[in-house]
Simulated scan of single mutants.
Amino acid sequence: MSVITLDQANTIIAAAFAKGKELNLKPLSIAVLCPGGHLIAFQRADGASTLRPQIATGKASGALALGINSRAIADMAAERPSFVASLGPIAAAGIIPAAGGVIVKDAAGKIVGAVGITGDTSDNDEAAALAGIAAAGLVAQG
């Protein structure tokens, strides 16, 4: 099974922080997970609040668990709130129904992990994730 390497994870994180700086975002927290949902790398910016590691991880792990980016999970939550709410207790790292959790694929289209970012608006979190993924030479699931 192909997975995001530590070097790629660090590139994702550095580029996502750079995008956050470029857009003048609030302090971000960034988690990069392997396809099995295990943490490869995590960093948080100075000033990030205390629950951000769990939120970032929950965005990425929820995307992997359901096979869709966390933005789509948010849409699902609007349509079927009871169903999505019932998933949290059975998901080890949680499921966060807000944009910012993006499944990552390699050039061949295989899932190699996921990125979860939190700290600013969900749209901005996702923009930073997409920038990080592209910088690592990987592909975001559409």
Results as ranks from 00 to 15, higher is better:
Ser49Thr: 10
Pro53Lys: 08
Arg52His: 06
Ala92Thr: 11
Ala41Cys: 09
Lys110Leu: 09
Thr50Gln: 10
Leu25Gln: 08
Lys26Thr: 14
Ile73Ala: 06
Ala65Arg: 01
Ile73Arg: 03
Pro53Asn: 10
Cys34Gln: 12
Ala98Ile: 13
Lys26Trp: 04
Arg52Asp: 09
Met76Trp: 08
Ala114Met: 09
Lys26Asp: 14
Ala98Glu: 15
Gln43Cys: 00
Pro81Gln: 02
Ile96Cys: 14
Ala18Ile: 02
Phe42Asp: 02
Ala74Thr: 07
Leu28Tyr: 04
Leu25Cys: 12
Phe42Met: 09
Asn69Asp: 12
Leu39Ala: 06
Asn24Ser: 13
Ala60Lys: 13
Phe17Val: 08
Glu79Leu: 09
Ala77Phe: 01
Ala41Ser: 15
Gly37His: 02
Ala108Arg: 10
Ser86Leu: 10
Gly67His: 05
Glu79Gln: 11
Asn69Phe: 06
Leu64Pro: 06
Gly47Phe: 02
Thr50Tyr: 12
Gly37Ala: 08
Ala60Trp: 11
Pro89Lys: 14
Gly36Ala: 13
Leu25Pro: 00
Ala77Gln: 04
Ala78Lys: 04
Gln54Cys: 08
Leu39Ser: 07
Ala48Lys: 10
Lys19Thr: 00
Glu79Asp: 05
Leu33Gln: 12
Gly109Cys: 06
Leu33Cys: 11
Ala91Thr: 09
Ile117Pro: 12
Gly109Ile: 09
Lys19Gly: 00
Asp46Gly: 06
Ala14Ile: 08
Ile68Glu: 05
Ala45Ser: 15
Ile30Glu: 09
Gln54Arg: 13
Arg44Lys: 15
Lys19Val: 00
Ile111Ala: 08
Leu28Val: 15
Gly58Cys: 14
Gly116Leu: 14
Leu33Trp: 08
Gly88His: 10
Ala63Pro: 05
Pro97Ala: 09
Arg44Gly: 15
Ala108Asp: 13
Arg80Cys: 09
Asp106Met: 06
Ala63Cys: 05
Ala114Asp: 09
Leu66Met: 11
Gly88Thr: 13
Phe17Ala: 02
Ile55Leu: 15
Ala93Arg: 07
Val112Met: 13
Gly113Lys: 11
Val84Gln: 03
Gln54Met: 13
Lys59Asp: 11
Ile103Leu: 13
Glu22Thr: 07
Ala45Asp: 14
Ile30Arg: 12
Lys21Val: 14
Gly100Ser: 07
Ala45Gln: 15
Met76Gln: 03
Ile68Asp: 01
Ala31Ile: 11
Ile95Val: 15
Lys21Phe: 02
Val104Leu: 11
Ser61Pro: 00
